[in-house]
């Protein structure tokens, strides 16, 4: 019974290993540290966004604005650096708190005015994307010594793997989010709100401040992902990260988090992103499969996981009913 909660997690992990094994068996160079480290560095921004999304979804909400926030923070950062000659660190120091404010405002609308997260963050998505295009419609290149240093920062792994700044930032964020969600009172409150926000309120959970903090955090992580994305592309573009929110949501669900809220693990999301990344790598290695198969396979995976979760929750319900019957 206990292990049932971890079942989706195990399945994702098993699928990940299985696909990796098949790839390694089929293609030379697939099962190498280089591929693994690329998996992390290529997906670092998605991983960071998905961690924020995990928080939001565990609390029973959803955040559609993250893709647009990635674009906005990328454009703002590159504008500040290239046009206004700010130091990148100063630009980051302005952008991250600004993103927190943006997310907090969305959280406030959701909590205070009892609006649906879906529609509020949809408006947030328009707002962020609109601001980004207003700032600049063209891609802005970043040319700064700090960025060159960032690109060179890192260390080699034996076997050709490279652990760069993006991967390191992700690992730091991952550790922080795990501590926050699984070892802090704030995390317990997030799970509580996702379970039932009315009960949580009656049990003394500060629902208002927690909700606001959740969306603020999600936006901060999205902005951070936008910054990491500029490390990757050396530019900021208003149309970057279109549809990224869907990838993040898909990764969270594949990672075993219930979209109804209240249940899930941070590490599952990481596995979800990696699984999606491995599928993509496999399709690239194969060469004969077209890119659209990625979307179809991810859609099927999502379907499989949602049905699995349905079956699991139904089983819990049946055990509960049987428990009641046995009790009476």
């Amino acid at each position: 019974m206990m292990s049932l909660r971890y079942l989706p997690l195990w399945i994702t992990a098993a699928l990940l290993c299985l696909l990796f094994g098949i790839g390694g068996w089929q293609f030379d160079g697939f099962a190498s540290l280089a591929v693994v480290s690329n998996l992390f560095s290529d997906n670092a921004f998605l991983l960071i966004v998905a961690l924020g999304m995990t928080l939001v979804i565990i609390s029973g909400g959803i955040d559609l604005s993250v893709g647009a926030v990635i674009a906005l923070s990328g454009v703002a950062v590159s504008l500040l650096i290239s046009q206004y000659q700010w130091h990148p660190l100063a630009a980051f120091a302005l952008i991250l708190p600004a993103a927190a404010l943006f997310g907090a405002l969305m959280g406030m609308l959701i909590h205070v005015y009892k609006l649906q997260p879906f529609i509020v963050t949809l408006a947030g998505m328009f707002l962020a994307r609109g601001l980004a295009t207003t700032l600049s419609e063209e891609s802005i290149a970043i040319d700064h010594s700090f960025y060159d240093a960032i690109a060179e920062f890192g260390f080699m792994l034996p076997g050709g793997g490279w652990v760069g700044a993006s991967t390191m930032i992700f690992i730091v964020v991952l550790v922080l989010v795990i501590m926050l969600m699984h070892y802090s009172r704030f995390g317990a409150c997030v799970y509580a709100i996702g379970g039932n926000s009315q009960s949580a309120q009656l049990m003394g959970v500060p629902v208002a401040s927690t909700t606001i903090a959740i969306y603020a955090l999600s936006s901060v992580l999205a902005a951070l992902a936008g910054i990491v994305f500029t490390f990757y592309t050396f530019s900021g573009y208003a149309l970057a990260g279109v549809g990224m929110e869907l990838d993040a949501i898909a990764a969270v669900v594949i990672g075993g988090t219930l979209l109804t809220g209240g249940s899930g693990f941070v590490i599952g999301t990481v596995l979800g992103v990696l699984l999606m990344g491995v599928i993509q790598t496999y399709i690239i290695f194969d060469g004969s499969l077209s890119s659209w198969w990625t979307k179809i396979v991810i859609g099927l995976l999502l379907f499989g996981f949602i049905v699995l979760q349905k079956l699991l929750s139904r089983r819990t319900a049946i055990t509960l009913a049987a428990g009641r019957a046995g009790h009476g």
Binding site: L246, L259, T260, W292, K295, I296, F303
Partner: peptide, 25 residues
């Protein structure tokens, strides 16, 4: 009994892939 937002997200993600498949990209 899947939440509507999730149920239709499936086709939102996979559907475009299906359309590309039909058009062969």
């Amino acid at each position: 009994k899947i939440q509507p937002i999730v149920a239709t997200l499936l086709l939102m993600v996979a559907g475009r892939g299906v359309a590309q498949l039909i058009n062969q990209g």
